[in-house]
Design a protein around this nucleic acid. Sequence first.
DNA 1: TAGTGGTCTAGACCACACA
DNA 2: GTGTGGTCTAGACCACTAG
Lengths: 262, 262
Amino acid sequence: MAESPSLPDLDPISDRAVFRQIADHLREAIERGQLAEGDKVPSEAQLMQHYGVARMTIRNALQVLQSEGLTVAEHGRGVFVRSHPPVRRLASDRFARRHREQGKAAFIAETEGAGGKPSVDSIEITEVKPSPDVAERLKIGPKDRTVRRSRRYLINGQPVETAISYIPVEIAKGTQIMQPDTGPGGIYARIEEKGYRLDHFVEDIKSRMPLRDEVRALRLAPGVPVFHLVRTAYASDGTPVEVCDTVMSSDAYVLSYELPAR
Amino acid sequence: MAESPSLPDLDPISDRAVFRQIADHLREAIERGQLAEGDKVPSEAQLMQHYGVARMTIRNALQVLQSEGLTVAEHGRGVFVRSHPPVRRLASDRFARRHREQGKAAFIAETEGAGGKPSVDSIEITEVKPSPDVAERLKIGPKDRTVRRSRRYLINGQPVETAISYIPVEIAKGTQIMQPDTGPGGIYARIEEKGYRLDHFVEDIKSRMPLRDEVRALRLAPGVPVFHLVRTAYASDGTPVEVCDTVMSSDAYVLSYELPAR
DNA sequence: TAGTGGTCTAGACCACACA
DNA sequence: GTGTGGTCTAGACCACTAG
């Protein structure tokens, strides 16, 4: 039984829009914990009655909270305070050689270590000409060809990340990189077998709201942004050997990096 | 003169909501470049006429695009395709000792290097008991006191980041850390003068939609998420000497990290 | 079946921008 | 002044959920 969160009345003097005042009241109730995670927000009808306003005004207010990522609406059930799932911490040593030597790809090793069930689906392998951005990162020409591996990562069945790797064909050719199953240690192990010793990675991270397709692929709730991370892998002679373009649900991850003070 | 982007008609068979179809049409026009950055989207009246629907239906469609960060509405002028400002790349060597030795704090050095005019305002210094999270990161008790330095960073007058540092009082006491101007090289230079040699930093990064106050402090457009970054600085004996809690406009930054392959 | 949110209509008045 | 978006009303019908 959800007890009502005792909302204040409207301030008739304020020139702040009514729907914003209502959104403020609800937001404060959430921040104070008066409405806890998972709690049901009063129904539109109840709020209309409490504030004496039209339904669209209430819906505008609820829309504000939803776009702030504070609530989710469930058709036929009600509006609920978002509960934040436990997040995974992506540490900066996840590409350590010792993991590859143990035959584990980064995602698998890390997820199992945290007690989740990792899986991968939607694996597609094609040969494509690189986009200008990818070509620049790989230091290759716009007509050179690359192997494009795209896939989706899931934890306990919940999609958390999509990734697309681009590897120059000369490196990928004749290796298991062209197969759906890349074998023990994943792509990076295959690249090293080919004679490229991995030296370091550079990760560029942006944050933005998801595109429509990303909402679908990651089953994102409204108001949840994504990390857009592009990683470039360099061999010890400075050659870029792979670019990996990933989109991650910000709900599922905390990215963690260690920097030397030098 | 904004030429009209030749929008398709509604699909009368589709069971996709009308406002979503309209949002899709506009989104596709933007993605195809038919509506370029800065272009004016057809007015609500024009769209009503084109599609033959009520105004609220059009407004719902425009609302979708706005919450995706694709457009901004300007009262009295129109709705425009968002133009993305040039972003700053925050590199992982920004805390290199050589910068401190040159007397530059990280933000100043980096911004000037990129040709921008850095400034800092809203500097506040208080002594507080740490939050549980900060206490844990600093490995101190909940009753130990810390110096809290909050400030806002701007580039060419545009706010891009707010930051709050917490330093244990024993470390900050009697140094310029307690003053608004921390002196050449900033906080970290003062900490090192006190005998703590900085060894490394750990940065934890989340992405989320901004709170109301953050929208105001950073003048964020609708549909723009923030990076929430917490950095902990460690001395060479492993002692945490500072925690810095920052919120950054995702419009203004690309975070860039280099990882060794080890 | 009753209650919930999802969509849509057809108006109204207001504040802001610009010529 | 005219056109723009911002807010609000008062209805309507539909689809989904749950008892």
